[in-house]
Design a binder for these strands. Structure first.
Lengths: 111, 111
DNA sequence: CTTATAGGCAACCAAATGGTTGCATGTCAA
DNA sequence: TTGACATGCAACCATTTGGTTGCCTATAAG
């Protein structure tokens, strides 16, 4: 029955929030930003952003390094690709099959 | 600033739950199952499963057809691939770059 | 030394989420 | 027609979640 990987769940949960995806986008645009930088323009408090970054770090999507009094954040795209490779690609085979099944079901509906 | 697509958000949120991914897996294994069939073995009530399927339908990941007194469910893998193509692949470029940035940051940490 | 800046920690709160129970409805079968 | 089976609908509940405010610590700059 292969219980799903714990890691996968964490990543999906982390990606479920718009603000967190926006943070990843920000790091994608410019890697190594400080907390304050990542807070700029977002309509929420620094503490809220801290929490989001915490969740992203728990999911291993972001790594951070303290330098002096500031904390630099780095994007780790690996888990995203794991999702792509291990999870999404699994559904590749059914691309057309599923639609066919559905159409067939719709037809036999009026028997 | 390109506000993220509304669709993408719905899909990510739908995929954030283990039980819902399990339902997709079930339909992947055998397409066109009834509600009762999809309930079997899952440790929750039929109503809970109904809600999950509702969310999956809202995200367009599942389509359903009523046949007689039963409701058949069909997997729609298209939104999953949209995520893969439009969102995940975006992070493809940074595969190695990001790690490099991080290592560089770690080195310059002890200056 | 003093002060401004960057960030951490914890309590608290409203709303969303995942789940339940109870009951109503529609459809097939005897 | 009378059950039995498959599903729908709604109220309700506990927990999680996304966010806040308030305060405390540490480092850099004057």
């Amino acid at each position: 029955m292969s219980t799903e990987d714990e890691t996968v769940d964490g990543v999906f949960r982390a990606l479920a929030d718009r603000s967190r995806r926006a943070l990843l986008d920000a790091l994608f645009a410019r890697n190594g930003q400080t907390l304050s930088e990542l807070c700029a323009g977002r309509g929420m408090t620094r503490q809220a952003v801290t929490k989001h970054l915490g969740i992203l770090e728990s999911a291993n999507l972001v790594a951070s390094v303290k330098r002096g009094r500031e904390k630099l954040h780095y994007l780790n795209p690996a888990p995203i690709h794991e999702i792509g490779d291990r999870w999404i690609s699994k559904y590749e085979r059914t691309r057309l099959d599923a639609l066919f099944d559905l159409k067939k079901a719709l037809e036999s509906d009026n028997e």
